[in-house]
C-alpha cells in the first residue's frame, strides 16, 4: 500500500503518517482519540494504583500500599480465580469457535439466497436484540427440568425413552447452558458480520477464480475466506473480549452453581468488586484479565498479519 513515499519529518514519521495528508490523517483520528483517552485514562490509572493497595470498602475507606501482594494472591492463592478462568476459557474457545462456524454457514446460505433473504436475516438476528437480562429469564424456564418446555418436549418426543439431565442444576451441564445461550445470542452477530464481509467482496475476483476452473469450495477456501479474514478476526476479537465479560447470564441462569461449576471470571470479578467491595483485589484481577486478553488478541492479529504478508 505504501506506494507514496514516507515523510522525512521526524514527528510525522513517528506517527507513521504520509506527509501529503498528515493534517487530514490527524484531524480524522482526533475526535476518537480524545474521546477514548478522556474516558479511559482515569479509570485505568486509578485501577492501576488500586491494584497495589489494599482497599476493603466493607470495613473502611483506608488505602494501604501492599506492593504486588494482590497479584500474588490472585495468581498463587485463589483457586476460585483459576476455576473461573477455566470456565471462561471454555466459553471463549468452544463457544466462540462454534459461533464462527455456525455464523459462517448461515451467512453463506443467506448470501446465496435470492428471495426472502431480508426475512431470513431479520429472523436470525432477533436473538441479539434480546438483552441478556431478558433472555436469561426465558432460558431459566426453558432449561428447567421440572417445569421447563425443553425436557418436557424431549420426553414427549422420545416417549420417555430419553431422560435428559437437569441442565442448569447439574455440575456437568450448567456451564453448557450458558454456552448454548451465548451461542444463541451471538451467532447472529457473527452471521451478519460475515454476511456484510461477503457482500462487500469484489465479484470480479470470485468470478476470476471461477473462470480459472475453481469449484465452489475451492473458491470459498482459497479466495473468499482469506478475503474475509480482517472482518472475521475483528468479529472473533470482539466476541472473545465480550465472552470474557459473560456476567448477566450467569446471574440469571445458575448464579455460578452448582458449586462453582459455572462461575465465570466476570461474575467472580463482579462479586469481588460489587458485593465484597475488595477494590484492590478486584483491580489486580482486572489487570490480569486485561493482560490475558491483550495476549490473546495479539496472537489473533499476528495470524492476520502473517496471512496478509503471504498474500
Amino acid at each position: 500500500m505504501a506506494t507514496i513515499p514516507r515523510t522525512d519529518n521526524w514527528f510525522l514519521r513517528r506517527l507513521n503518517v504520509q506527509r501529503r495528508h498528515w493534517k487530514a490523517a490527524l484531524l480524522f483520528v482526533l475526535p476518537a482519540f480524545v474521546m477514548l483517552l478522556s474516558i479511559t485514562i482515569y479509570p485505568l490509572i486509578r485501577t492501576l494504583t488500586l491494584s497495589f493497595t489494599k482497599l476493603e470498602l466493607a470495613v473502611s475507606p483506608r488505602e494501604t500500599f501492599v506492593g504486588l501482594d494482590n497479584f500474588v494472591r490472585v495468581l498463587t492463592g485463589d483457586a476460585r480465580f483459576w476455576n473461573a478462568m477455566g470456565n471462561t476459557a471454555f466459553l471463549v474457545v468452544v463457544g466462540v469457535a462454534l459461533q464462527v462456524v455456525l455464523g459462517m454457514v448461515l451467512a453463506l446460505l443467506a448470501s446465496e439466497m435470492r428471495r426472502g433473504r431480508t426475512v431470513w436475516v431479520t429472523l436470525f438476528l432477533i436473538p441479539i436484540m434480546i438483552a441478556p437480562v431478558v433472555s436469561g429469564f426465558q432460558f431459566r424456564v426453558i432449561f428447567n427440568d421440572t417445569f421447563g418446555p425443553l425436557n418436557y418436549i424431549i420426553r414427549q418426543l422420545s416417549a420417555g425413552l430419553i431422560s435428559p439431565p437437569a441442565w442448569t442444576a447439574t455440575s456437568g451441564t450448567a456451564l453448557l447452558t450458558i454456552l448454548i445461550t451465548d451461542l444463541w445470542q451471538w451467532t447472529p452477530f457473527m452471521m451478519l458480520l460475515i454476511l456484510a464481509g461477503l457482500e462487500s467482496q469484489s465479484q470480479e475476483i470470485i468470478e476470476a477464480a471461477r473462470v480459472d476452473g475453481a469449484s465452489y469450495w475451492q473458491t470459498l477456501w482459497r479466495v473468499r475466506i482469506p478475503l474475509l479474514l480482517p472482518v472475521l478476526i475483528i468479529g472473533v476479537l470482539i466476541r472473545v473480549m465480550d465472552t470474557f465479560k459473560t456476567f448477566d447470564l450467569v446471574v440469571l441462569l445458575t448464579a455460578g452453581g452448582p458449586g462453582s461449576s459455572s462461575e465465570t471470571i466476570a461474575y467472580y470479578t463482579y462479586l469481588n468488586g460489587f458485593k465484597f467491595f475488595s477494590m484492590g483485589y478486584t483491580a489486580a484481577m482486572a489487570f490480569i484479565q486485561l493482560i490475558v486478553i491483550i495476549v490473546v488478541s495479539r496472537v489473533f492479529l499476528s495470524i492476520q498479519k502473517r496471512q496478509r504478508g503471504a498474500d
Binding site: 485505568l44 470474557f244 478486584t282
Partner: peptide, 12 residues
C-alpha cells in the same frame, strides 16, 4: 484503540 474496550467494566 482496541485495547480500551478490553478492560473489565466492573473495574472501570
Amino acid at each position: 484503540i482496541l485495547s480500551t474496550r478490553m478492560f473489565p467494566p466492573v473495574a472501570s
